[in-house]
Amino acid sequence: MAAVKAGESTTAASEKATHGAAPKSPGRQNPVLRVVKASDPLALAGMIIILAAWYVVTEQGWVRPVFLPAPEQVFRFAEAHFLESRLVQTQNLGDGGILENLIYTTTSVWLAVLLAIIVAVPIGLASARVQFLRMFSDPSLLTLGAVPVLILMPFFLVWFGVSRNGQLLLLVLVAVPIIYVYAQRAVTNLDPVYAQSALVLGVGRVRLIKDVYLRGTLPEILGGVRIALAGSWSIAAIAELMGAPQGMGRLISTFAANTNITGIFATILILAIVATLTDITLKAVFMFANRWGSVNK
């Protein structure tokens, strides 16, 4: 009896309950807010602490300026040589300043990663489904990923001369295996039920690739792109050391030859800022692509 009564009394309530609560819609986020969110406040705090430590250490004279220049000194140098720099011009590194070299390196890195995406994403996605392709792509690309490609740079210099092409090829060779592995793994992780469901609903080949395979794997692929990009800056700089018309790597090496410690610090600092900003932007893109939350839910 009691059970029946309890049952009756809950029917009305459960009628509502079974509809499930409407989840709070997060509303449209504007892109600026996304970028702000993507810049990890903890990382920001860490950066400020490091800057403060740098300031204190030099201010107190615990380290001699020959080894570690003071922050203001570095900032002032960066500002003075950013747009227009005699120092840069006399070294034959273009007719501007640090900015021109920064643009050179940044272009190399972005262009290379873009080319790597174009090459690696289709092969990576397809290799997860087509065994015949994987038979070739896995051994070749995974070996490539294990090789320290920097040793190839001297050969590229012979082939391409002192131009951007050698660095681009090197950077592409570094980024391709990383993005390939991420794309392949993303498809492997994608439950086959989604493709089956799409097929049952009457999907065509193009939509299947676009709406299921690409959309379902985009966040993981972007995760791979972020990692490839993060590694590319230092490799770009090192490749430039070996031979490039200009670039941040060349700039560092000329400053080093002249024991201009402040110059080295300024260059590294600017490069680090651009790398960080790029990463924050990409992370914002990642968060947008991952609104539906498969990865890092």
Binding site: D191, V193, A198, V200, R215, W292
Partner: peptide, 20 residues
């Protein structure tokens, strides 16, 4: 021969696309 929208299926597993 092969799937077609003539024959609908509610899968035993979850099949709703999480990205839509």
């Amino acid at each position: 021969r092969g799937p077609s929208p003539d024959r609908g299926l509610v899968f035993q597993k979850d099949s709703v696309f999480p990205w839509m």
